[in-house]
Structures are given as C-alpha cells and as structure tokens.
C-alpha cells in the first residue's frame, strides 16, 4: 500500500512541472500585460512604460522568465498584485479562509444529507419515501448549480429572508467574537448547500444502490438467520460496507469544489478565491491569476491523487500494474 501511494506521488511531479509550464505560457499568451491594464497610455510617457517593462523583466527570454517565476514561487514569493498593490500572498491569504470554510461546510452538508437520505432510501427501497428521495435526486442531478443558486437566493434570501444573499460576514460585527462566527456561518450555509447540490444527489443515489445491493448478500442472510435484529443488520453490518466506498469520493470533492467555488462565489458575491479568480481575469492581474491557476491545478492534481490512493485503501486489488 505504501509503495503504491509513494509511486503515485512520484508520478505527480512531472505532471506538476508540465502543468506549471502550461499555466505560465497561458498567462504570457494573454493579450496585453499587466501594465497595459494599469496605466492609461494616453497620459503616460511611452518611454516610461518601456522602462518599466524592462525593469519588471517582461523583455527577458521566456525560459528565463519562467525559471525566475518558478524559483520565486517555490520560495513563496508570488509577486505583487497589480490591482491591489500588495503582495499576492496577502491578497490570497485574506480570502483563503472564506473558501476553506465554504468548502468544508459544503462537504459536511453533502455527506450529512446524503448519508441520511441514502440510508433511509436504501433501507426502505421502492416505498413512497424512497421514490420521493429519488425524485428530488433526479432534479438535483439536472439543475445546474448556478440555476439552483439563483433560485435559492430568490426564495431563501428575498422571499423568506432566512439567509443573507451576499458577502461573507455582517458589517459591524467584531472579528473573533461568537457573534462574528455565527454571522459567518449564517452567510456560508446557503452557498455551501448550493455548492454541494449535485454531489448530495449523486452520493445519495450511490449509497442507496449500494445498501440495496449489500442487503441481498450472503452475510446479511447469515446475520438474519442468526436472529440479529434488523436495525443492527442495517446500522452495523450493511452500513459499514456501504459507507467505505463513499469515502473515495473525498478526493473528487476537492476537484469539484474548485470549479464549484468559482460559480457559487460569484452568484453569492462571496469574497473567496473563486471570485478573486474571475476578477483577476477581468482586470488582467497576472501575478494573482498565475498563482491562483497554479494553486487550482495543484489542488486538482492533489484531489485526484487522494481519490486514487483512497481507492487503493478501500479496494486492495487495485495496484499499479
């Protein structure tokens, strides 16, 4: 097992290097550099712009620029944001906790709801409750997250007034107090639910089908024959076998949260990394854009790695070659 995990991690390194080269070339290919977005060319001396270009190293050969960027990146120096005029690390650091909170809450809600609905539906298949859950799931699989988000804001924020429709915390609450945390939680619940919407449906369906499949197996029949109470068969014997495969999805959750966060944070104007990413594309804030793209790529790689390794843990038959 350890050998397998180790080999998978080693295989990740060339992938990471290739990705970084591609991300870097993409950023360089973007029309205009960060200077053209910041300076009004009619008011600035063209000679000054040329000087600044030279000074910032935009005229160096590409490989040189790439290596400078990579070595700075590894040292944790991501450059200065051209938009906020402060270190990229600070810009990202300010928003990172929001996205982490959103992601974690979303995963928690997803697994909690999927677990409850899935284990109920799996235990009582083909009943009214199961069909109802199945119907909700079908809708959940078909409603795109941004449509769900818009409807959620309309109903829960505007019509019912249960949740705020934007921001990550109320203005005027002292940071660090209990009320501050409560307010943050209040703001994060609706986006987190929307973010997990699709996954709730697919995990519920997965758990339900797995429980039904397991309930026909020999060990369940044996347990029944021994006179084990039905509740114990479902809550202990079957659930243990059905929940484990669900864990392998954790890796994919990381991947899904990245693209989900871009959409969800924009809908809810939630100040996280996804929103920052879209804004950076809009204003061509290269240092931030590059760092975020690299970060997202790394996280995707990492998520897929975790999924693979968890597969190996759950199913020992899966090995490299």
């Amino acid at each position: 097992m350890l050998k397998y995990a180790f080999r998978r991690i080693l295989g990740m390194i060339p992938m990471l290097l290739l990705t970084s080269i591609i991300v870097f070339s993409l950023a360089k290919l973007m029309p205009g550099d960060s200077l053209s977005g910041e300076i009004d060319p009619r008011n600035t001396n063209p000679q000054y712009i040329a000087e600044m270009r030279e000074k910032l190293g935009y005229n160096d050969p590409m490989p040189q620029q790439y290596f400078r960027w990579v070595s700075n990146f590894i040292e944790g120096d991501f450059g200065k944001s051209t938009r906020f005029k402060i270190e990229v690390a600070d810009v990202i650091g300010e928003r990172l906790p929001n996205t982490i909170l959103l992601g974690l809450t979303s995963i928690l809600i997803t697994y909690l709801l999927a677990f409850m609905m899935g284990s109920y539906a799996g235990r009582k298949p083909y009943t009214l409750g199961d069909n109802l859950i199945g119907g909700i799931n079908y809708l959940g699989l078909s409603i795109p997250s941004f449509v769900a988000g818009v409807f959620a804001i309309y109903f829960f924020s505007f019509k019912l007034g249960w949740f705020p429709s934007n921001g990550s915390v109320d203005i005027g609450v002292t940071e660090g107090t209990f009320n501050w945390w409560l307010s943050r939680l209040h703001h994060v619940l609706l986006p987190a639910f929307v973010l997990g919407f699709l996954n709730i449906a697919s995990y519920t369906q997965f758990l339900r089908n797995d429980i039904i499949e397991n309930s026909r197996k020999d060990y369940v029949r044996t347990a029944r024959a021994k006179g084990t109470p039905e509740s114990k068969i479902y809550n202990v014997h079957i659930l243990r076998n059905s929940v484990i495969p669900l864990i392998t999805y954790l890796g994919f959750d990381i991947v899904a949260i990245i693209s989900g966060a871009i959409i969800t944070e924009t809908i809810f104007t939630y100040p996280g990394l996804g929103q920052l990413f879209l804004q950076s594309v809009g204003v061509r804030d290269y240092p931030v854009l590059l760092t975020l793209t690299m970060m997202f790529s790394f996280l995707t790689l990492f998520g897929n790695l975790i999924a693979d390794i968890l597969y190996g843990v759950v199913d020992p038959r899966i090995r490299l070659d």
Binding site: L29, I258, T293, N304
Partner: peptide, 19 residues
C-alpha cells in the same frame, strides 16, 4: 490524457477563452 484530466476544467476554459 492524464495531463488534460488533471487540469481544473473551468479554470482553464476561462483562461484560454480570455486569451
């Protein structure tokens, strides 16, 4: 294929589209 699959899809579509 692995390389392509390991890209965050939405992020790359947005960046490429902007380019």
């Amino acid at each position: 294929t692995d390389l392509i699959l390991n890209f965050p899809f939405l992020v790359f579509v947005i960046v490429l589209n902007a380019i």
